[in-house]
Design a protein around this nucleic acid. Structure first.
Length: 264
DNA sequence: CTGGGGAAGGGGCCC
DNA sequence: TGGGCCCCTTCCCCA
C-alpha cells in the first residue's frame, strides 16, 4: 500500500509514548484465547484529551503533528491494570503463529520463523522458510549482500515480491502467513497491533477521543480524520478549484468526477 | 453525490 | 538486525 507520508517529523524527535506498555500487556496471544473481556474493559482508559491547541480549527493538523497530540494519561493507566493473561513464550512463537490457536492457519508458517537468522537459514538449507523464494546468494556470503547490484535478491515465494533485506521480506511474508489470529472470530492478521485494533471491534474499546465533540474512536488514524471534520480548512486541497477536503479519498473522488475548476 | 465513520493494510522510523 | 510502534492510505458502508 502506498505510503506517501506527508510529514515526517524530522525536526522533532520521534515521540515514544508508552504504547509499548499497552502492547506488552496485551500481546497478540492474549487475544487468541477467548479474551477476558472484563480485563480488556478494565483497561479502557478514560477518554483522553488531545492537545488543547487542536481546538484551533486551522491548526488541527499542525497540532496533531506535535508530540502532545498523543493520548495523554492512557499509558500510565494501562499496564498495571492489564494482567498478563497468557504468558509469552517467544517471539518465534509470535511470528509463526504458535500459541495463537489459529482455527486453520492460512499457510504453514515456519515454526522458527523470526528467530532464525540468516546464518541459521543457511544452515537449515533455507527450507524452513516456506515463504522465501530461492536461496539468495547473499545468504551464502555477506560479501554478496554488499553488492548493490544483487541487493534485491530476497524474493517472496508467495508473490515474488523483492526486498532488499531479509527483515523486510520476513515482515512482508507475515501478510501472507497472517500469524495473528483473533480468538473470537478467527480472523487473521499480519501484525499484532492490527489484531489489537480488530479486537477493539469486539470489545468496543475506543481509547481515542475527540476533544471537540467527545466522540471516541478505536483507531487513532480515524480520530485524525475525524478531527479534519472540525477544521474549516481541510488538509487536502484541489489544485484546480482550491476546494479542500478532509480526506484524500474525497479529493480523489472530486478530481475523478471532474473538477469544475472553480470554488464551490 | 458528498461527507464521514469503521476497519484494515503495510511501509518507515526508532530503539 | 529485528521488533514495536507510528503514520498514512484505502476500501467499504452508510447517512
Amino acid at each position: 500500500m502506498p505510503r506517501s507520508f506527508l510529514v515526517r517529523k524530522s525536526a522533532c524527535p520521534r515521540r515514544r509514548p508508552n504504547y509499548s506498555e499497552l502492547h506488552d500487556s496485551s500481546p497478540e496471544f492474549t487475544f487468541q484465547q477467548p479474551y477476558d473481556q472484563a480485563h480488556l474493559l478494565a483497561a479502557i482508559p478514560p477518554p483522553e484529551v488531545l492537545n488543547p491547541t487542536a481546538s484551533l480549527p486551522t491548526l488541527i493538523w499542525d497540532s496533531l503533528l506535535a508530540p502532545q497530540a498523543q493520548p495523554m494519561g492512557w499509558p500510565s493507566l494501562l499496564p498495571r491494570e492489564m494482567p498478563k493473561v497468557v504468558e509469552l513464550t517467544s517471539l518465534s512463537d509470535e511470528d509463526s503463529g504458535k500459541g495463537s490457536q489459529p482455527p486453520s492457519p492460512p499457510s504453514p508458517a515456519p515454526s522458527s520463523f523470526s528467530s532464525t537468522s540468516a546464518s541459521s537459514l543457511e544452515a537449515e538449507g533455507y527450507a524452513a522458510f516456506p515463504g522465501l523464494g530461492p536461496l539468495p546468494k547473499q545468504l551464502s556470503g555477506l560479501s554478496g549482500a554488499k553488492d548493490p547490484q544483487s541487493r534485491k535478491a530476497f524474493n517472496c515465494k508467495y508473490c515474488n515480491k523483492e526486498y532488499v533485506s531479509l527483515g523486510a521480506l520476513k515482515m512482508h511474508i507475515r501478510s501472507h502467513t497472517l500469524p495473528c489470529v483473533c480468538g473470537t472470530c478467527g480472523k487473521a492478521f499480519s501484525r499484532p497491533w492490527l489484531l489489537q485494533g480488530h479486537v477493539r471491534t469486539h470489545t468496543g474499546e475506543k481509547p481515542f477521543s475527540c476533544s471537540h465533540c467527545s466522540r471516541a474512536f478505536a483507531d487513532r488514524s480515524n480520530l485524525r480524520a475525524h478531527l479534519q471534520t472540525h477544521s474549516d480548512v481541510k488538509k487536502y486541497q484541489c489544485k484546480t478549484c482550491s476546494r479542500t477536503f478532509s480526506r484524500m479519498s474525497l479529493l480523489h473522488k472530486h478530481q475523478e468526477s471532474g473538477c469544475s475548476g472553480g470554488p464551490r
